[in-house]
């Protein structure tokens, strides 16, 4: 029953994601019609076929498309849409896990300092004249994981990690790292604009290689988290009840914390700090599909993808391009307030 509902909702949201993605690909400065987008996508489609020499990729379609149109769609719009979808998927997924894990409706993916850690890594990379492969995403990713691991170590005593301690340690570490970021920004000089733009969260410089960095991490950890959906449900009953129902509470908490931190870090590393996706999308979906994580995790993730692709389209539509973080917050916060007043979003 749950499986059937999950499949139904996920299929619906996936279809919505494809529709929003295709619509988004037609929007922008250059005029590209839906038909042209469809042709470019179909042209790019490759089907594996077996011929005499072994496995070969065959492209079944060969529509006639103008080269500029092809470049705009394939090199600019589609990678950006794909990255937006991946990041939105990851943030909403991690946000759902964190809200369930902390049994706290205000929890979001950055609650244990992941985003702030990533910001320190990214700003440090921008400010400090260093260069290494995948520099910015790599240092953001490492910064995120170091911060999360630090918070975890501070909050753990005698093999136990009380959720409340974790929350408070996260807040304290975020405050400290905030100070570090401010100091780095003071020293930034020419890099200031780049750093601030990164901090706001944007998808402007999306490239396929960023998508290729993030997708495998998010996909693998998505499977891990979905396999823990039932444990998350039981954890919602409180840790003592979860223990009596056979959950190894501390171990499960470690897995969930580590996995969702890496998912968040992967997203933040390629896009900067985009707020609100991981906070409101899980709430929206919880109102729609209920609290069961077996259906909530995949649907939230897909809805996050839809939400971020849509808001990023809005962000790049204006006369001057805005960081998408501004749009998600500007649209998300009022909507969240509406939910708060109108529906019961006080409990998980």
């Amino acid at each position: 029953m749950v499986l059937a509902r999950t499949v139904r909702w996920s299929a619906g949201l996936a279809a919505l994601l494809v529709a929003v993605a295709l619509a988004s690909a037609t929007l922008g400065y250059a005029d590209v019609g839906p038909l042209a987008v469809a042709r470019v996508v179909l042209n790019a489609l490759a089907v594996p076929t077996v011929d005499g020499a072994g496995l070969a990729w065959r492209r079944p379609f060969g529509f006639d498309v103008a080269p500029t149109t092809r470049t705009i769609v394939r090199r600019i719009r589609l990678p950006r849409i794909a990255l937006g979808a991946t990041v939105g998927f990851a943030l909403a997924l991690a946000g759902t896990v964190m809200q369930g894990f902390f049994r706290n409706p205000m929890a979001d993916p950055s609650i244990i300092g992941v985003s702030t850690g990533a910001a320190v890594g990214a700003v440090a990379f921008i400010v400090v004249p260093l260069s290494f492969p995948f520099g910015l995403p790599a240092s953001a990713f490492v910064g995120a994981l170091l911060a999360a691991f630090g918070v975890y170590l501070v909050a753990t005593e005698g093999g136990r990690t009380p959720v409340a301690t974790l929350l408070l340690a996260g807040i304290a570490v975020q405050a400290f790292l905030g100070a570090v970021i401010s100091y780095l920004l003071l020293q930034a000089g020419d890099g200031l604009e780049t750093a601030v733009f990164w901090l706001m969260g944007h998808l402007q410089h999306s490239t396929w290689w960023r998508v290729k960095l993030a997708v495998p991490v998010v996909a693998v950890l998505f499977v891990v988290l979905v396999s823990y959906a039932r444990d998350l449900n039981v954890l919602l009953l409180g840790e003592e009840d979860a223990h009596t129902l056979g959950i190894e509470v501390e171990r499960t908490k470690r897995v969930l914390l580590a996995t969702s931190s890496v998912v968040t870090a992967a997203a933040v590393a390629v896009s900067g700090v985009i707020g609100f996706v991981g906070l409101i999308v899980p709430h929206m979906m919880r109102l729609v599909v209920g609290p069961d994580h077996r259906i909530l995790l995949p649907t939230s993730a897909l809805a996050g993808a839809v939400f971020l692709v849509a808001t990023d389209t809005v962000a790049r539509m204006g006369p001057a391009e805005m960081p998408v973080g501004i749009v998600t917050a500007a649209l998300g916060a009022p909507f969240f307030l509406y939910l708060l007043r109108d529906r019961e979003v006080h409990e998980l």
């Binding site: 449900n233 919602l236 009953l237 009840d241 009596t244 056979g246 209920g290 609290p291 409990e347 998980l348």
Partner: peptide
């Protein structure tokens, strides 16, 4: 015993649970 092994042998009815209200 692991938590899982215990929970196959011992079931506990807690005093009260304040959580999981949306299930």
């Amino acid at each position: 015993l692991s938590a899982r092994e215990i929970s196959r042998r011992v079931a506990t009815v807690p005093q009260e649970s304040h959580l999981g209200f949306d299930f």
